[in-house]
Simulated assay, not measured.
Amino acid sequence: MDLVKIIRNKEKNIRQYYSKNFDKIGSMDFIEMILLDAVFIIEFIRESNAFEDGPKNLEPWMMSDIKEDLKLLENQLPFFIIQEIYDEVDRARQEFPSIPFLRLATFHFGKYTFSQGVNNDPKVKESRHLTDLLRNLMHNGVIKRPFTFDNIKLKYSAVMLRKAGVRFRVAKDKCLLNIRFEKGVLEIPRLEVDYSFERFVRNIMALEQCYKPFEAYICSYIKFLDHLINSAEDVDLLVEKGIILHWLGDDAALSSMINKLNENIGDTSAYYDDICKNMNLHYENRWNRLKATLELVYFPNIWRGTGTVAAAILLILTLIQTISSVKSVF
């Protein structure tokens, strides 16, 4: 059969993508495993794109489980073999013109909120497998800045930074990683978190630590969030500003998730060192903290501000009257 021949001719190359445990699997068993997995993935993604609710012969809960499994690093088939099987199946079906499998997969995963801004980035075309594709979609359109190994840590959480006058704003940028800090304003693209977010991010982080330690975009992003979020109060502030939208029940659950994600990050390159450095300097400037205290304590709204001004005027008038009285006595 043509499909079996395709896999047999590439068997040695395919095995290089897997751990040595797969060496114990016989040739025919290995070929059958790759064939069944590849055909299933092809048909699942093809039908998911054709029907809004996914393949009609699958229950909704099955769809959810399969989507999660497709993101797992340990479940990945190399793109080149899926593409060859896909092309052969299309030739047998006489379906022309054929849409490249990578384009189908890009469209399928491009529907997720974390992958907004999908375009013709060359790195997307270089994806090794589905997990790599997801990572490339996440940093599609990312701002170019140098990676470093200085590992400058953000010392202050969101609540502390607000006390130093830092303002938080939702960035209009579609790329999740494009965080900016200019003139005391921290702009962060909106992050939407559900119960599958932790599992998904752990797989992307594992991929970066194994294969992309010098371009660890997602690891750097999680580290930054971990330093920015220390408690439920920090999450509450970011939710209030529209920067975070989550479905985890309470803010403490999200804070705990982010902090746990950072526990397993090893030594990787850092992407936000310059931002962390500037934010630390902003907080450590006493004048910034003084101005913020005046604004937060005495001028948080028009009524408190009006009362503060009235009290100040009354104090000044009282002082003038006292001085006038003292002068009249002498």
Rank of each mutant, 00 (worst) to 15 (best):
L154H: 13
P97N: 06
F51S: 15
D90G: 12
P300H: 01
G26Q: 00
L245P: 01
I41W: 06
D236Q: 08
D65Y: 10
H129I: 01
P78T: 00
E192K: 02
S19G: 14
L228N: 05
P55E: 11
L70W: 00
G26M: 09
H108V: 06
V166W: 11
R15T: 14
I25T: 04
I42P: 00
D251R: 10
F101Q: 11
C276Y: 08
K241P: 00
K20E: 13
D226T: 07
C175S: 06
G249W: 04
A310Q: 14
T148Q: 15
D65G: 14
D236T: 06
N151F: 06
G242M: 01
I258M: 08
A216L: 09
G249H: 04
F80L: 09
L315C: 08
F40G: 00
I316T: 13
S220F: 00
N75C: 11
Y283P: 09
E263V: 06
Q83R: 03
F299D: 12
S220I: 02
I34M: 05
K277H: 11
Q94D: 11
L36R: 10
Y298C: 10
S115D: 03
V89Y: 05
D23P: 08
A312R: 00
N301C: 01
I31C: 05
K56L: 13
I313P: 07
N75A: 12
K56Y: 02
I34N: 11
M257L: 09
R289T: 04
D267S: 09
L77M: 07
P60K: 04
P60C: 10
D236I: 03
E95R: 15
E68G: 14
D150R: 01
I85L: 05
D236M: 01
G110W: 02
I66M: 13
F114N: 07
C210G: 12
G141N: 02
R91L: 07
D53N: 15
L290F: 15
C210F: 11
N21S: 13
T306W: 15
E187M: 12
D121E: 05
G266R: 04
N203E: 08
F214M: 10
D37M: 12
Y272W: 03
L238C: 03
L186E: 02
S127I: 07
L314C: 11
I41A: 08
F44A: 15
E126S: 09
D194T: 05
S255T: 03
L317Y: 14
L228R: 00
